[in-house]
């Protein structure tokens, strides 16, 4: 039972960390668009395949994140 004296504060600390992470994610707009990323991944895979296949040229370039 004495383990609880350590485990309870540990649980509370972890909880605070998780809540902070959750607030950060919300403020960062992670929950704003729940549709696009799901589709994005399909197209990105397609793009990679085209780049491996030299016959088709890819005009689209990755934007550099400035």
């Amino acid at each position: 039972m004495t383990a609880l004296y350590v485990l309870i504060p540990a649980a509370v600390l972890i909880l605070i960390g998780v809540i902070w992470l959750f607030f950060w994610a919300i403020d960062n707009g992670q929950y704003e668009d729940l549709d696009s990323p799901a589709h994005q991944i399909v197209f990105d895979g397609e793009e990679e395949k085209r780049q491996l296949n030299p016959k088709q040229t890819s005009a689209a370039q990755e934007p550099h994140d400035a």
């Binding site: 704003e32 668009d33 729940l34 549709d35 696009s36 589709h39 994005q40 399909v42 197209f43 005009a59 689209a60 370039q61 990755e62 934007p63 550099h64 994140d65 400035a66």
Partner: peptide, 27 residues
Amino acid sequence: CAACGWLIERHLRSLVGVYEARLNLSN
């Protein structure tokens, strides 16, 4: 549909001078 989003983003990003083009499909 979702492909429209891809088309718009890709087309704009391929232009010189466009740094970022991000489409939110839900709104």
